[in-house]
Design a protein around this nucleic acid. Structure first.
Lengths: 150, 150
DNA sequence: CTATATCCGACCGTGATTGTCCGAGTTTAT
DNA sequence: ATAAACTCGGACAATCACGGTCGGATATAG
């Protein structure tokens, strides 16, 4: 539960890949797909959505491909995930849309909206650039906490 | 995306309800179900899982029902959600299980595990008691942030 | 002009999620 | 003792989102 979709995974991998290459050279969908064993056609679909969301720019034709539209420091994980899966809502009823059977009776909206904000903040602060840099910091002391349990 | 299941919603509603009643009186599944327009049988099933997870205790027979097993201050949202949906993993590959096709090639594990910890922390700190108390604090200044967009 | 690339929409199979049904065991009240 | 009200547990059907596939249109390089 609370797992993000595979498309979102693929999107993050692609973004990180493009961030590492950087520069002005565009990368084809095939190249990325092959590198991570992702179905080409699906990878393309994901990339297209990222273009539509304004996170990537694409050039058509031979030697075409995809490039980051802006610096990787200016792209948050939240932006990528929302581009693929749509705005993430913890509850069926969001702040604006309340298409839920028991909206009237429901008593847990407000507490849940609060924790939604916290999750949004967690995803909104981390950038693609940080994610790309992390590779080196694999052995970083993360303090696994005791939250895991089971 | 990242939405929690309806069963988890129902579980939280029930827990909050029981927390508000408090005391030593047990409440039947029917009573809770009717109050929030939840299918009785489904509500019962959810409550059973909460019993098995040790969050509730049940008494059988006429006048039977469910009660919190411990103080509502000692029950986190994370405990309830995990009891219903199982341990939440943001990625397909968790710390222990890595049953993912592209585990070797994957480059985004560690960054995502980090944010998983943050989400776990957010859910682990909030208790049922706080959620029940929140009702009063509806108009609290939550600072909606600009994360919503779209 | 031809080959190669992105682009875009439509389509389908599968698995998880939701919800329903039924039977069995238990306790209380009449 | 009998009936009623409740918990327990599994099995089952319907729905739906998700992952993945296919075909065609379009644009670019050589």
């Amino acid at each position: 539960m609370l797992r993000l979709s595979k498309k979102a995974d693929y999107a993050l991998m692609a973004m990180k890949h493009l961030a590492e290459k950087g520069g002005a050279s565009s990368t084809s969908a095939r190249e990325i797909a092959e590198q991570y064993d992702i179905p080409i056609e699906l990878m393309a679909k994901v990339l297209q959505r990222l273009v539509r969301a304004g996170l990537l720019v694409s050039t058509q034709g031979t030697r075409g491909g995809y490039m980051l539209s802006r610096a990787s420091e200016a792209i948050s994980l939240a932006a990528v995930i929302e581009a693929i899966d749509g705005p993430f809502t913890v509850t069926a009823c969001s702040t604006e849309k309340h298409d839920c059977e028991q909206y009237g009776k429901c008593s847990i909206r407000f507490p849940l909206w609060r924790i939604r904000e916290r999750i949004a903040a967690a995803l909104g602060t981390v950038t693609i650039a940080e994610m790309a840099a992390e590779q080196v910091a694999v052995a970083a002391p993360v303090a696994h906490a005791a939250v895991v349990r089971r």
